[in-house]
Nucleic acid binder design. Structure first.
Length: 844
RNA sequence: GCGGACGUGGCGGAAUUGGUAGACGCGCUGGAUUUAGGUUCCAGUGCCUUUGGUGUGAGAGUUCGAGUCUCUCCGUCCGCACCA
């Protein structure tokens, strides 16, 4: 086993029992001793290991696992602090809380490091994991480390290989040619990230688009369900759901074909705007389209042109921002309604991978078509007019709104849906097309021409084709001790990996050397965490039924679309294989904001990073946790400030001193015998408990929770400064306020609160304490403040009995001298009374 | 290009359902303690011509009442399928 407990025990340091008293007697807040001692306590007691216990309510809190890049950055600290706070809060509510941690260990950076430092990707990755595990422990996160996993471990990826083979057998996986970025100098495939301004990042050579056979998983089979189920995800931020909805991109349109003049075959196109059909002035096909290829065969200029437009990146942003260029193929498409012939062009903006690789172009009513038509002086026809009949000039700009058909023969006067239906009926009768729902979502290409990834478990036999590796031969192990120089896959050079025999005919065969997209591993790790050591199958159903779904998932907004969509898809695949029982993996989602410094994202290239380790050294983990939770709401970006850290540190020091100087008491608090000042403090204590609980659970904003605790602290410290709080009910209300503060902060500042809780006279550990419940009777007030406005402007504040009715409020406001002064010479027209809040007198 | 979000003091942010704008923290100013610096404590702190006026990127609108709702504009940031 790679991950042993022993090493962590050594890491956690000092085991000699140190009494709480020796800590709380220290004049200054001894954060180092506190944190070391409390972390030892958690380790020795195995405090965060959990088991499937069907009789107990569970809570599964998951933070997106990190890529082991080498060191934690502030983004990690923030992400994992949020998850830890939620986990510890839920535990105090009495739940059986699972909070695991692991490593998204495959990926490109390990290969880059391998080239740079001449070390194998595996060794580099394991070293990073060991270092980062230590950093996480030092931050005091309540992980069940016995469940730790790393995706590069065969125990993990073997099940992914097994599952892929199942999908292959079920027909949910297929192989087809797809475009990649090809570096002609380095003779290698480049990631989009490695293409800079259309050139290879290392060679500087112009990148070519090349087609190679790759594996795809049929996510489009699940497009409709992935779209519909978004509505069930009430615990997800609206914006993430909208992003996924747009990504899936359901559209209703017409699929139909043009005849090509003088030919037997037809040109298939898809359009969402059949109402503009009479405005078609040309068609455009992708460079890879058969018609384009055929035309190029007898036209050297066109062949050269197609070659040039196949350079440049393949990403969506490259496609959308590049200059739109094209060339006439010489073929003519015959308009299905008026028989007119329009030219067929080849254009770089048409994607072979989307739809049929061909489009009808209506420059009058589509911006992209308009740009292209203007450039090549193709005709622009107006066939739609605005509903309100405003004058438009389609020669100047495309009119893209829905409107009414004009210049369209029999369709004139029809609105969008009427025109749509007309075309649908007509084409059905002609047998050349029909209504079709299309999705923007494309099938998931999972092949990567990289070494450091899960080997795709496929054997290529010259006789029998591509076959899945039989289950008993799994895992296909990735050789870890390799020479890696970046020129193609090292797997191709290892004969013992490459050569195998065909599982069907037994003849000589070769292994697939591509590896999986790393999104594969991160698409199911949440489930594996619930049965991480299970070796009889991919997932243990009993554990799945107890722990899933993930109650709270936390991670960066940058994963809003891809990772979350793939994980949702994978969950449905797992469900259909009978491995899990629910439809969706993540009940509630919190997308944390970025950590910024000087207004920019912290990054190595900008040199504006802050190293968490140095901060922990200087201020302790509790301060760092508190600062990251206090400075901004979790879903917004966090602007780094050194003096802000000082502020959090100062608060914790003050709190430490105040509680340590208090003598704990067991005196019973008697609500009815409290004086006004005592009642006031008690009111603040319980109002704070109420607000903070709501902030943690419903609102998930921790900055305001901390602010509320600070307010209580301020009131408490004023109280202790001006009253003798060593005896009687004074001591009782102070004890109550302190206990509240310690409990309310325990999820955020767990080390300090562990010690302070014991100082306040409790034997149980604060992690096992019950979350405080507010006392409704303590919140009852005798008098309330009412705002008096004249014409919407605040003129006075009135202290009135809490039970005051609307009429009395109005009378009191009218009688107020300041209000009177502002009403002088005016006639009262109207009075608005908001019970318990304000009175607005409208006068002129 | 497409899609998404955001814009409030000197700064980070608060205002949860249309009802006292600026909670809490930082910074700054003054004072106390200290040989001094630091620390700690106390008081003040949106802006202005201060019995008042004004103020939430700009402009308009709805409303008794708008930071919050609607529209237009400006600006900033994020994602876009091989980075994870």
């Amino acid at each position: 086993m790679v991950f042993d407990i022993i090493r962590r025990l050594i890491k956690s340091g000092n085991h000699s029992p140190m009494s709480i008293q020796s800590l709380t007697n220290e004049a200054e807040y001894p954060f180092q001793k506190v944190e070391t001692q409390v972390q030892s306590f958690w380790t020795e007691n195995n405090s965060f290991a959990v088991h499937t216990e069907p009789s107990k309510p569970k809570f599964y809190c998951l933070s997106m696992f990190p890529y082991p890049s080498g060191r934690l950055h502030m983004g990690h600290v923030r992400n994992y602090s949020i998850g830890d706070v939620i986990s510890r809060f839920q535990r105090m509510l009495g739940k059986n809380v699972l909070q695991p941690m692991g490593w998204d260990a495959f990926g490109l950076p390990a290969e880059n490091a391998a080239m740079k430092n001449k070390v194998p990707p595996a060794g580099w990755t394991y070293d990073n994991i060991n270092h980062m595990r230590g950093q996480l422990s030092r931050l005091g996160f309540a992980y069940d480390w016995s469940r730790e996993l790393a995706t590069c471990h065969p125990e993990y990826y073997r099940w992914e290989q097994w599952f892929f083979c199942r999908l292959l057998e079920k027909g949910l996986v297929y192989k087809k040619e797809a475009e990649v970025n090809w570096d002609p100098v380095d003779q290698t495939v480049l990631a989009n990230e490695q293409v800079i301004d259309g050139r290879g990042w290392r060679s500087g050579a112009p990148v070519e688009r090349r087609r190679i056979p790759q594996w795809f998983i049929k996510i489009t089979d699940y497009a409709q369900e992935l779209l519909e189920d978004l509505e069930k995800l009430e615990g997800w931020p609206e914006r993430v759901r909208v992003m996924q909805q747009n990504w899936i991109g359901r559209s209703v349109g017409m699929e139909f074909s043009f005849t090509v003049a003088g030919r037997e075959d037809r040109l298939e196109v898809y359009t969402t705007r059949p109402d503009t059909l009479m405005g078609v002035s040309y068609c455009a096909v992708a460079p890879e389209h058969p018609l384009a290829q055929e035309a190029a065969a007898s036209n050297a200029d066109l062949a050269r042109f197609i070659e040039t437009i196949r350079t440049g990146g393949v990403s969506e942003v490259d496609m959308a921002t590049m200059e739109k260029v094209g060339m006439d193929t010489g073929f003519k498409a015959v308009h299905p309604l008026n028989g007119e012939e329009v030219p067929i062009w080849v254009a770089n903006f048409v994607l072979m991978s989307y739809g049929s690789g061909a489009v009808m172009a209506v420059p009058g009513h589509d911006e992209r078509d308009h740009e292209f038509a203007t450039k090549y002086q193709l005709p622009i026809k107006q066939v739609i007019r605005p509903l309100d009949d405003t004058a438009i000039d389609v020669q100047q700009a495309a009119y893209t709104e829905h409107g009414i058909c004009v210049n369209s023969g029999g369709m004139d006067g029809l609105k969008f849906t009427e025109a749509f239906d007309f075309i649908a009926t007509t084409f059905n009768q002609l047998g050349i097309g029909q209504k079709k729902v299309n999705f923007r979502l494309r099938d998931w290409g999972v092949s990567r021409q990289r070494y450091w990834g899960t080997p795709i478990p496929v054997i290529n036999c010259r006789e029998c084709g591509a076959l899945p590796v039989p289950a008993q031969d799994l895992p296909v192990l990735l050789p870890e001790d390799v020479e890696f120089d970046g020129s193609g896959s090292p797997l191709k050079k290892i004969a013992s990996f490459m050569n195998c025999s065909c599982p069907k005919c037994g003849g000589p065969a070769e292994r697939e050397t591509d590896t999986f997209d790393t999104f594969m591993e991160s698409s199911w790790y949440y489930a594996r965490f619930a049965s991480p050591r299970y070796n009889k199958g991919m997932l243990n159903l009993e554990d799945m039924n107890y722990w899933l779904d993930v109650d709270q998932y936390i991670g960066g907004i940058e994963h809003a679309i891809l990772h979350l969509l793939y994980a949702r898809f994978f969950h449905k695949l797992l469900r259909d294989e009978g491995l899990v029982s629910s439809d969706e993996p993540f009940k509630r989602l919190l997308t944390q904001g970025m950590v910024l410094k000087d207004g920019a994202k912290m990054s190595k290239s900008l040199g504006n990073t802050v190293d968490p380790e140095g901060l922990i050294e200087k201020y302790g983990a509790d301060t760092v946790r508190m600062y990251t939770m206090f400075t901004a709401p979790p879903d917004q970006s966090l602007e780094w400030s050194d003096s802000g850290v000082e502020g959090s540190y100062r608060f914790l020091r003050r709190l430490w001193k105040l509680v340590c100087s208090h003598t704990p008491t067991k005196v019973t608090l008697k609500q009815n015998s409290l004086n006004d000042v005592q009642r006031q403090l008690r009111l603040k204590t319980h109002a704070t408990i109420k607000k903070v609980g709501d902030d943690y659970e419903r609102r998930q904003v921790f900055n305001t929770a901390i602010a509320a605790v600070m307010e209580l602290y301020n009131e408490l410290s004023k109280f202790t400064a001006s009253h003798d709080s060593t005896s009687g009910q004074n001591q009782a209300v102070v004890q109550e306020a302190m206990e509240a503060i310690v409990l309310l902060l325990a999820p955020i500042v767990p080390h300090m609160c562990h010690v302070l809780w014991q100082h306040l006279g409790h034997n149980e550990a604060v992690i096992d304490a019950q979350w405080p419940v507010y006392d409704e009777s303590a919140l009852v007030q005798d008098s309330i403040t009412i705002v008096a406005q004249v014409n919407g402007k605040v003129r006075s504040q009135l202290s009135l009995s809490a039970e005051v009715d609307k009429e009395s409020m109005q009378l009191a406001a009218m009688a107020d001298p300041t209000v009177q002064r502002f009403l002088e010479g005016l006639t009262v027209r109207k009075v608005i009374v908001v019970p318990g809040k304000l009175v607005n007198i409208v006068a002129n």
